[in-house]
Nucleic acid binder design. Structure first.
Length: 643
RNA sequence: GCCGUUGUAGCUCAGUGGUAGAGCACUUCCUUGGUAAGGAAGAGGUCAUGAGUUCAAUCCUCAUCAACGGCUCCA
């Protein structure tokens, strides 16, 4: 048979040669490091013989698929350890994930806890040393059912019930046998470094109505050094965590008496908010948006009209009763904006109408979902609604996307994914407004704009808003959690429910399309993200403390006040460290507080009307006149905002 | 909301069945110091809240609240 390698080289091997043998024929080193093989595009065990002409890619730790095979095998090793330590334990699924693997188990009467992890880890290491082979066995469905019936394992039987006969394989290593599609690494011995990370509850089949299983997360590496590096990397990431930095830099805080998920913005946080709003207002004004303002609550009838009450009620704070009326805190700004549009008596000549507001919304997020600033119950959205005709839709949608990209340049956001969420046919009328032709038409329009604008995106079904498809910008927190940073949604349903119309050129009433957009997401999540993105080192324009003046001794406090005041007069956020401390100490503290510029002033500066400039993270920049310094930072701010 | 863990001074964290400690921060005094921590003294806590066990609870038990790691859900 002919084997074709990724570099297009072709070599001849006898039929039935295994991938591992082929690896050996190429180099001993490769044979030692190879974990799995990709045969004709399918990832397979190394020990599986190849029987026909095929393309072959040998996967190592450097390949994503090599890693996931390694971790998948590690999950089996953990299961083997668990079964040895806790006889009778039952297993659901144990897949590899982005960083490691997990296994969902039902430990029966025993409750697994954090304290059990070191024992399990030890057992895994012991079993790994035995270097047992992962043996693949094809089996018919009857035998498989018999095996798990005898084992009294309802979970695996449930898995089996969804499999077709003939596709069933078992893998055995040591005393542990699992129903598994594979593939696996050849043997347990290459799993050298093991760390079980944490233990958590996870609903069976991901459904909260089902029983909760115990999920154990772990990670393994071929070398101890790699595990050590991974753990060190996690420690580093924790230092960027916005919850830690937010406290250290005095940006926000929570208070038990105020309530969970209700952040208090400290003065530094308020500066961040004001700068973001300033940027948004400038940008939106240039793009033809008009600002509006709306109250924080509304009567239930409006949310019946909007559809929030049937579709969204569980995410809203319960109503309050006033004068026989039910009032709800608003979870979104759109209904209020629709009311404003409705009051405008618009003609096609007025469209598009773009209404913008940094509106404060309240959402009743379940307690377990709260997460620092990233997931809160009171939030201020960079919201706007664009009402336009069907012909205008593509241009408007494109313009919104361009605004996103402009913001990403300003904030240097490079790692993100645009996620296009569409409806699912089965949930029409339940999760989604029941009008399939409109869904399909709108989704096509969005897809066309994305393709025409050459914006890379991924498409996911059954993730849309109840009123239309949406595009979310996904980013990751320091500790690797994924978040929707910004959102851009099409609404073809709610304007009609509100009876919104405009008069078209034929003097007929027509319903506008509405685009909801929030490129800067919410203040809460966006700032949470920015803290981690910049690791607290905000760019000058955004920095809550732009300049601190550090007098060498209190003899120069007067001059320091003069310098600081002059900067304040030009809208620079400058203040003074007048403490009775040595200059080294003042510098150290200013550096720790991540203040962008330090101006050291003493005898020399006072005499010449100058300042000695030091930049955060960079050090001494030398002496310059007050006016030169002002000019320099003014132009730095300009440059940062005009990208 | 569910599973698991945690809750001690402003912050980070020790600690004990006999009503508490460190470092940093804070206050005062000394020091007037040129690019990442000068010295001394002092002040600070119903040990998350509520009940129970006990002669005695910060420590043991239960409940509640909150935070954290996940699940479900989402900007």
């Amino acid at each position: 048979m002919k084997i074709t390698f990724p570099d297009k080289n072709v070599r001849e091997y006898p039929d039935g040669t295994t991938s591992l043998e082929i690896a050996k024929s190429l180099s001993e080193g490769l044979a030692r490091n190879v974990l799995a093989a990709k045969v004709n595009g399918e990832v397979r065990d190394l020990m599986r013989p190849i029987n026909e002409d095929a393309s072959l890619e040998l996967l190592t730790w450097n390949d994503a698929e090599g890693k996931s095979t390694f971790w998948h095998s590690s999950a089996h090793l953990m299961a083997e350890a668990l079964e040895a330590l806790f006889p009778g334990i039952k297993f659901w699924v144990g897949p590899p994930v982005e960083n490691g693997f997990y296994y969902d188990v039902d430990p029966g009467n025993h409750t697994l806890s954090q304290e059990d992890l070191p024992r399990i880890e030890e057992k895994m290491k012991e079993l790994a040393k035995k270097n047992n082979a992962y043996q693949r066995k094809e089996i018919n469905k009857e035998e498989a059912i018999k095996y798990f019936t005898e084992k009294n394992d309802e979970y695996k039987l449930d898995l089996l019930s969804n499999l077709e006969d003939g596709s069933i394989t078992f893998y055995t290593q040591g005393d542990f046998t699992d129903l598994c599609r594979g593939p696996h690494i050849p043997s347990t011995g290459s799993i050298k470094a093991i760390r079980l990370m944490n233990i958590a509850g996870a609903y069976w089949k991901g459904d909260e109505k089902n029983k909760q299983l115990t999920r154990i997360y772990g990670i393994t590496f071929p070398k101890q050094k790699e595990l050590d590096e991974y753990l060190a990397m996690l420690e580093e990431a924790k230092k960027r965590d916005h919850r830690k930095l937010g406290k250290e830099l005095e940006i926000f805080t929570f208070d038990e008496e105020v309530g969970p998920g209700l952040p208090l913005w400290l003065p530094n946080g308020a500066v961040l908010i004001e700068e973001l709003e300033r940027l948004a207002k400038r940008t939106e004004q240039a793009a033809g948006y008009k600002r509006v303002r709306t109250p924080h609550l509304a009567k239930s009838s409006m949310y019946l009209t909007s559809g929030h009450l049937p579709y969204y009620e569980e995410s809203m704070f319960p109503a309050m009763q006033i004068e026989g009326e039910k009032y709800y805190l608003k979870p979104m700004n759109c209904p209020h904006h629709h009311k404003i549009f409705g009051s405008m008596n618009a003609s096609y000549r007025d469209l598009p109408i773009r209404l913008a507001e940094y509106g404060t919304c309240y959402r009743y997020e379940q307690s377990g979902e709260l997460f620092g600033l990233m997931r809160v119950r009171s939030l201020q959205m960079n919201d706007a609604h664009i009402y336009c005709t069907e012909e205008q839709f593509a241009d408007e949608f494109k313009a919104v996307n361009e605004m996103y990209l402009k913001y990403f340049r300003i904030f240097n956001i490079e790692k993100y994914v645009m996620r296009f969420s569409t409806h699912s046919k089965e949930k029409l009328g339940k999760k989604y407004v029941d009008n399939e032709p409109l869904w399909i038409k709108t989704e096509d329009m969005v897809r066309r704009v994305l393709i025409e604008s050459k914006i890379p995106y991924i498409e996911v079904a059954d993730e849309a808003a109840f009123y239309g498809p949406k595009i979310d910008v996904q980013v990751w927190s320091a500790i690797g959690r994924e978040f929707t940073l910004a959102t851009n949604q099409v609404d073809f349903a709610v304007p009609a429910r509100f009876g919104l119309t405009f008069r078209n050129a034929q003097n007929e009433l027509e319903t506008p399309i509405c685009i909801h957009r929030a490129p800067l997401g919410t203040h809460e999540r966006f700032i949470g993200f920015l803290i981690e993105h910049y690791a607290g080192n905000f760019p000058l324009w955004l920095s809550p403390k732009q300049v601190i003046v550090l007098p060498i001794s209190d003899k120069f406090n007067d001059y320091a006040r003069l310098v600081s005041q002059e900067l304040n007069n030009y809208d620079i956020r400058a203040h003074i460290d007048e403490r009775d401390e040595k200059i080294g100490r003042k510098i150290r503290d200013a550096e720790t507080r991540k203040i962008s510029y330090m101006l050291i002033v003493g005898e020399k500066e006072k005499e010449t009307g100058s300042v000695a400039v030091r930049k955060h993270g960079e050090g001494d920049k030398g002496n310059m006149s007050k006016s030169d310094f002002l000019k320099m930072i003014k132009s730095e701010i300009e440059d940062q905002l005009n990208k």
